[in-house]
Simulated scan of single mutants.
Amino acid sequence: MQNTAVFCDMDGTLLNSEHRISMRTRRAIAGLAGRGIPFAVVTSRGIAGTYPVLELGGVSCTAVTYGGGVILDEGRNVIFHDGFSRAKAQEVADFLGAECPNVAWIAYSFEDWVSPHRSDPRVRREERVVMAEARDGGVDSIERDEVQKLLCICDPEDTLEVERRLSERFPELTVVKSSDILIEVMPAGLSKAGAVRFLCDHWGVDPADALAFGDNYNDVPMLEVAGRSYLMGNAPDELLARMPLHAPGNDEDGVARVLEELGFVR
């Protein structure tokens, strides 16, 4: 059983509704480490928005950030990264400004994240959730010519239309809805599934022997590549109908309870 690995989304999965890691879940993660089973969080959050929550929960682990754009080992060393150019990111930003003016966006490059919309309450909320602050600025203020992601924050009634328009305008990019208000714009081919394959190869684990947990549409590729995958009980009904294995919700210690039931944690 030890020749496996566990991959876990953060928001809506590992974290409860208060965006915290419960004590029971902390113990489950520690139990995996005690048995030598690799554990990785696989999140669309950026680097700066991932570690404060892990540190508060007392968790040290491999972190897949930006939906696979940057992977850091347990010592926080970058072992993989990918992104698109500042010029491409500027194209997306210009399109949003002209065609979707009610969308607030944030651009991410490694630990730097910038937004010209910091006064927008939706951006302020995102900052509170991830326990980090964006920097005032546009794409042209990013130092490195590698942008991992643009996060589009929409009003709920606009999200599907914005996703459609972005997908049509930028077929060369990955555009995926990650919540009722969030759309991720990332390099083509970048996904949580690719991160799972990379880490399984890194650890010498067959993806068919891996476990994965997720709760939303951007988790589906990861859930499909892992041999045993659980959709959280708080996931959208459409996804729950599609996927056979379900875990209790994120406010019910769903990840920990499944790991306990499977005997991974004593």
Rank of each mutant, 00 (worst) to 15 (best):
A87R: 13
Q90N: 06
Q90C: 03
V92N: 01
D94N: 15
D94C: 13
D94G: 12
F95I: 09
G97V: 11
G97T: 14
A98Q: 11
E99H: 11
E99V: 08
E99N: 08
C100Y: 01
P101M: 08
P101I: 08
N102E: 13
V103R: 06
A107C: 05
A107R: 05
Y108A: 14
S109E: 01
S109R: 03
F110E: 07
F110L: 04
E111N: 14
E111F: 10
D112F: 07
W113H: 13
V114R: 12
V114W: 08
S115E: 05
S115M: 05
P116T: 10
H117R: 07
S119Y: 06
S119C: 07
S119G: 07
D120P: 03
E126F: 13
E126K: 11
R128M: 12
M131I: 12
A132L: 07
A132C: 10
E133D: 12
E133P: 06
A134C: 13
R135G: 00
R135K: 06
D136F: 09
G137P: 08
G137Q: 09
G138R: 09
D140F: 00
S141D: 12
S141K: 09
E143A: 14
E143H: 10
D145A: 01
D145E: 00
Q148K: 04
Q148D: 03
L150H: 05
L151Y: 07
C152A: 11
C152E: 02
I153E: 02
C154W: 02
C154R: 02
D155R: 13
E157S: 15
T159A: 10
T159R: 10
T159P: 04
E161L: 15
E161D: 15
V162N: 04
V162D: 04
R164E: 13
L166I: 00
L166Q: 02
S167N: 00
E168N: 11
E168F: 08
R169Y: 02
R169T: 10
R169G: 03
F170G: 05
E172R: 07
E172M: 09
L173I: 12
L173S: 11
V175S: 05
V175C: 07
V176I: 15
S178K: 01
D180F: 12
I181H: 00
L182Y: 14
I183L: 08
I183G: 08
M186H: 05
P187E: 05
L190K: 12
L190H: 11
L190V: 15
S191L: 01
K192I: 09
G194R: 15
G194Q: 15
G194A: 14
G194C: 14
R197I: 15
R197V: 15
F198Y: 11
F198T: 02
L199Q: 04
L199D: 06
C200K: 00
C200N: 00
C200S: 00
C200V: 00
H202P: 07
H202W: 15
G204S: 09
D206V: 07
D206G: 06
D206A: 12
P207E: 08
A208R: 13
A208S: 13
A208D: 12
A210K: 03
L211N: 04
A212L: 02
